[in-house]
Design a protein around this nucleic acid. Sequence first.
DNA 1: TTGAAAGCGCTAACAC
DNA 2: GTGTTAGCGCTTTCAA
Lengths: 353, 353
Amino acid sequence: VITIKDVAERAGVGISTVSYVLNGNLKRVGPATRERVLEAMRDLNYRPNAVARSMVKRSTKTIGLVIMELDNPLFVPVTHGVEAILRDEDYHILLVSVVDLEGEVQAIETLRSQQVDGFIFMSLSIRYPSDHILRLKEEGIPFVLINRYLEDSEVNLVRIDDFGAGLEATRHLVSLGHTKLGIISGPIYNKWDRRSPIQRYAGWEQILKEYELPVQPEWVILSDYTFEGGYQAIQQLLAQTTGAVGRPTALFVANESMAVGALQALHEHGLRVPQDIAIVSVGDPPFAAYTIPALSTFSLPMEEAGQTAARILLDWIKSEKAPEPQQIVLPCTPRIRQSCGTKLNNLERKLWI
Amino acid sequence: VITIKDVAERAGVGISTVSYVLNGNLKRVGPATRERVLEAMRDLNYRPNAVARSMVKRSTKTIGLVIMELDNPLFVPVTHGVEAILRDEDYHILLVSVVDLEGEVQAIETLRSQQVDGFIFMSLSIRYPSDHILRLKEEGIPFVLINRYLEDSEVNLVRIDDFGAGLEATRHLVSLGHTKLGIISGPIYNKWDRRSPIQRYAGWEQILKEYELPVQPEWVILSDYTFEGGYQAIQQLLAQTTGAVGRPTALFVANESMAVGALQALHEHGLRVPQDIAIVSVGDPPFAAYTIPALSTFSLPMEEAGQTAARILLDWIKSEKAPEPQQIVLPCTPRIRQSCGTKLNNLERKLWI
DNA sequence: TTGAAAGCGCTAACAC
DNA sequence: GTGTTAGCGCTTTCAA
């Protein structure tokens, strides 16, 4: 392996001189020497040892990215966003995926041992116990949370506007003339309080209140954010709406997986979407435009979340002092496709009935 | 920050003693001292500095995971697999995603600077120019490729049996009684020769030959592995099969995205799957079971690919000598669902016609 | 403008 | 068994 020493020797200078040119310390070394050193580096195919540098600088230019549930597809765009920002500043990602809190604690230990300069934690929108993370704060270690709920604490956190998504999705349904609104909600009662279903539900409820529409208990199904859950939810909905109340004409399905499952179940029952029942959802994976019918949904800005988190973290690291804790809430974007139909569809349906 | 020195002081021993207990050098330190040291560590909340250790050990216990096209969903299970294996051995992942070869070259430089102990390269199944990777080989740096084609070189490489997937998928169609077989193939003519479409196509063709079925040119559509591509491919197929040859009764769609697009297009044309046309594909993302109809497909063992690559790499790193170059080919697994129907379906269809 | 030297935190001979 | 010490490759005072 070839080191700074070899370069110095070949260039006929001291090792500190080499270090100076390495660090772009222009004032400290004359152009002629500089050129000689550069040439020596090239000749020897010198590659600086970042570990040695980290050792003395006490900074590895590496951040720990800790992901709860790597199989969460949302993790891909987030990582993408984080990467894009870090790359510009020549920082690197140490990636650890964990499945539970114990794993997370463990990961923090390991990564601190590796001397990462900071952390980004990405998780489902859950209020996990987070003492181990707050400890980082006490120790002055930079970190940013994505999608985790820790409302009472003064931390830096970027998350999605789930309430707004529920609001706008439902408003879209109403704007199309629907008045009989149902919902397939996510796992509201969780070991640790999952927030996104609660908030999306709250958004839905708010619109019903705003337009003075009734919350029909039979039209409210609690499910679990999975494909199968969405499928089953429809079975349940159809089973319990054979009575006088009848079926809703539109459904807010709280995430895209359940929406896809719901689409399949409705199809099997011979119900047409959107003519018999309209569907709107939250979350816009690539296949959402190719479901049958194409899904109208509100897209989650996960890449932006990653970018934002990375930017906050980098500022923190480089300024060496904690920023004012800020909680950034990113809005969802409507992707109106076919699963809600048009106002006309809806009028026609009413005439027929 | 608290170091080995502090621990030594508090335990009233020399720093090497601390180092010994740190490294589990049981023979070198008495149980009493050992306990004292351990206690001191606990009291001081000591956390070993992995960077310092790496420096002297000349090993970071870190591997570089270089991904071409991070937005490739296959990357998630691969990373999962790699992670699982590395975690057991207490190795870590430095993740870099790149979009082109220049980025890859750059990533190698950076990661080498970071002193990673080895590399895993994950890419699309393309024969990229790979001189920069072969240079690693010359320098004796451990690396494993996933899904990249480099047939002529003596490298370690794990990939998917695309030929087998095409073979088995098509055989499945034939076993159901189909004789009029079409294909929507992937991007065969590429800047650098993408292999998986070629191989999957070859598998398809092989079966036709085996059963002496004709390759009808109008039933062969070249597309691009995207949702939209699959959608358009169906438009094209239907447009060019109005003549005497008629339509195929079954289609091998070379990847899952195109299959989903195809399903949508067929639906829009009022063609029923599988009654009017059967569809089989390759690639089994979570939503494949919830398309309409549920997709029969051959699942790609990406997680296993990640595990296998990680295992080979780790063995290499730890044995400190290059293994016999091996090219591991992993088979796909059939996931038979509804998009191909049953033999009976097919017989009925024939009777009707 | 350049070089010598003192570390950064840890490991591993080597000596006691 | 335990302590002393010489590095690992680099940065950064401090002198020259």
